[in-house]
Amino acid sequence: MEHRIIVAGFGGQGVLLIGNLICHAGMEEGNNVAWLPSYGPEMRGGTASCSVTVSDDEIGSPIVTQPDICIVMNQPSLDKYLDAVQPGGKLFINSSLIKPTRYRDDIETYLVPTSEVAQEVGNLRTANMVMLGAVAAITGVVKTESAVAALREAFGERRAHLIPVNEKAMALGAERTEKV
């Protein structure tokens, strides 16, 4: 088993955190993991992305160029990665911000209404967790419980009170996601 994942979007959408939590959860589940952020000029333009690898074998190249799971949170990221997804791979689109004009029929595409769900649970900042919930439930790359545990650790005691709303966002994210 090896999942090679790209998470991409605007800085501030929490894309690095999504990758980080997948990585953390994957490690706790006993897998080898690697997380590599984009850094440098492309960060300055306001977009951020990271490569995440979750594998039960030794990880070779940590740079993901052809993901089998691709998460795009904004339009430029979809434009950049749509054709990079491996045939048979899964593409998760933040449908609150992106209106796709083209779909590939050799991959599975999922639309995740991150902002709407986040609004529904009462905290707009949970939009990235809506996405993570959908990805965890649909791909099984990590278990939802492991992702929640990773989030709990990342939040620490100071923000522990935010765990329930994030958990709710993840569950509802999985529920509201539509397969194209």
Binding site: M27, L36, P62
Partner: peptide, 10 residues
């Protein structure tokens, strides 16, 4: 290299 510096691993 930049990758060893930036990569996060267990």
């Amino acid at each position: 290299d930049g990758m060893i510096g930036q990569i996060m691993e267990p």
